[in-house]
Design a protein around this nucleic acid. Structure first.
Lengths: 113, 113
DNA sequence: GATACTTGTATCCAAAAGGATACTTAACTT
DNA sequence: AAGTTAAGTATCCTTTTGGATACAAGTATC
């Protein structure tokens, strides 16, 4: 493998790592939903129409394992859970912004200005 | 729907549009492969070990439909096809870079520095 | 004691994405 | 005529992802 090919592979690996963490249909919506103030399971669920409990639950776990959100148990009446972005999770801004901007541009480009 | 909710939905839609175009296992590798000089079907195929003909073919079509690459028929011996990034496709730099950077950081973070 | 609320889990199923492998077309070479 | 090369296609199959629905555990309220 040449040097160029090696750098090419590393680029791809890095990008695929990112995709693994934030790819799929729901992860970014969930992150943005929490970012915009929804802390509880049912709030997030309502903020993202059509997501099912099973999927939301799995995705929250995935995001927690990747240190992007943290899960806190508030010991009250019918036990309450609060999700919040970690400081590290806030760093996603750095990719969410470009993805958002590019998506807007692309929509205009494709659907004829 | 409040104003905030509307902006939230638009953000999500924009990001999901982007994901639709460049998401999945192979699209970014293919783009980078073309960007780094591979023009022909079999070159791209060899540069990306494990991709199959069927998948490569589908992805190239998808990228072409989204105006990111262009396909040129060079009328020679056993007809040759050349793929190239469009100027518009070069604009992907704007998202590929952040995705790459974040992926590198994240790997360090997760696999313990 | 029945009912409700919250955060999930369990089970089963459907759809989408991706993979293996063989084949095609068409002109050119030998 | 047989073989070669390039760019795919065709067919079938496996894996991954996502969805529907029901239900559970624990406490509080009626």
């Amino acid at each position: 493998m040449t040097n160029g090919e090696k750098r090419f592979q590393e680029k791809i690996n890095a990008i695929q790592d990112t995709m693994f963490v934030i790819g799929g249909k729901w992860k970014i919506p969930i992150i943005l939903s929490i970012y915009s103030g929804n802390k509880r399971f049912n709030d997030i669920s309502k903020a993202i129409p059509k997501i099912t409990n099973r999927v939301l639950s799995k995705e929250l776990k995935h995001l927690e394992e990747n240190l992007l959100i943290k899960r806190t148990v508030v010991d009250t009446y019918p036990v309450r859970i609060e999700y919040a972005l970690t400081d590290y999770g806030l760093g996603l801004e750095e990719i969410a912004k470009p993805l958002e901007n590019w998506g807007r541009k692309h929509k205009k480009k494709i659907s004829g200005k």
